[in-house]
Amino acid sequence: AIADLPEDLGLEVIVSRLERDGDQRLPGNGAWAKPGDVLSVVGTAEELDRAVELIGEALPGDPFHGHDLDYRRIFVSNNDLVGIPLAKLRPQLSGMLITRVRRGDHDMVATPETILQLGDRVRVVAAHDRMGKVTRLFGDSYRRLSDVNLLPLVVGLVIGVAVGMIAIPLPGGASLKLGTAGGPLVVALILGALGRSGRVVWQIPYGANLALRQLGITLFLAAIGTTAGAGFRAALSDPTSLTIIGVGALITLLISVLVLVIGYKVMKLSFGETAGILAGMQTHPAVLSYVSDVTKNDLPAMGYTSVYPVSMVAKILAAQILLFMLL
């Protein structure tokens, strides 16, 4: 069957349409490939080259807007489609096919495991006369995305602060706490993984996420600067403090160079993603902000979020454990 071709051949692609005897149609579950069929295949350049080797001959040109089938990019603004794998949405998506999902500046091939988020842009293939219904199903409302529901955010913060205040007893009467930073972080990871609980969608639209992230970084740096400014001036006149600052700068430089070399040269990650990992290890949003401005893509944020939660929680716990061991 055409729908099973990618899985049977080990390809990470999706067959978006079938053309046979001049007629275009969606490749339904019961459609079988025949010699002479023209298949439109979506995937990365490497996967498309493999598909040509395994399936047949590549034809020049791009898919066209025919009389039977059409394709369109649509904003996802309908909460009912968010936080649920596409495989479970199949009854609602009958008669259409999602081929690509664009999240921020990153394109990915849609799979049955793909979970849509508010603000995603999906490329949908459907019959020309069904495009209006398809558009209404996904919402396609930029204004609706701008009306952010703050209730899930506030509830998540309250739960996070409560979790952060839970004390884990240690021998000798001491205790460990995640605090007001670690608690919301852990709860956010759990709620983000869940995606939704019933009618409540925990994820924030992509545009609002970026705005809150930038606002948070600005407030964080402003608070750090105003708090540490007076003490830093006094430290510049103290030889002991200058020695500590110098040793700390040297250690930070060596670790930074080591991470960049291993990530970029050894593991062959992109430089933007490697720099994001470095910022996450240091739990330093200023580095992330700078790298994101330079690269102008989402790779630094992807690297940052992959290591930041572990680094933050590890620092919070390590500081309390060291204090317990030394006192």
Rank of each mutant, 00 (worst) to 15 (best):
A3K: 09
D8Y: 15
L9A: 14
G10F: 01
V13W: 03
V15K: 06
V15R: 09
V41Q: 08
V41N: 11
T44H: 14
L48I: 07
L54E: 07
L54S: 14
L59H: 03
P60N: 03
L69A: 03
D70P: 04
N78E: 09
L81M: 12
I84W: 06
P85R: 00
A87I: 06
P91Y: 15
G95Q: 12
L97D: 10
V101T: 02
V101D: 11
R102M: 04
R103F: 10
R103H: 10
V109M: 08
P112L: 01
R121N: 05
V125Y: 15
A126P: 14
A127W: 00
D129H: 13
K133G: 15
R136A: 11
L137I: 03
S141V: 00
R143E: 04
R144T: 01
R144P: 00
R144A: 03
L145G: 00
L145T: 05
L145E: 00
L150P: 07
L151V: 11
P152G: 06
P152D: 10
V155L: 14
I159N: 03
V163L: 15
G164A: 12
M165A: 09
I166P: 02
L170H: 10
G173C: 11
A174E: 03
A174D: 02
L178G: 12
L185D: 15
V186M: 14
I190W: 12
I190T: 14
G195H: 01
S197D: 14
V201Y: 06
Y206M: 13
Y206P: 08
L210C: 02
A211N: 08
L212Q: 00
R213I: 04
G216C: 01
G216P: 04
A235C: 08
S241T: 12
I245D: 08
G246I: 01
L253C: 14
L253Q: 07
L254Q: 06
S256C: 07
V261K: 07
I262P: 14
G263H: 12
K265L: 13
M267H: 04
K268V: 06
S270I: 02
G272D: 04
G272N: 01
E273V: 10
E273C: 04
I277R: 15
H284F: 13
P285Q: 11
L288E: 00
L299F: 13
G303N: 13
Y304S: 07
Y308F: 13
V310D: 02
V313M: 07
A314I: 07
K315W: 11
I316A: 13
I316C: 05
I321M: 05
M325H: 05
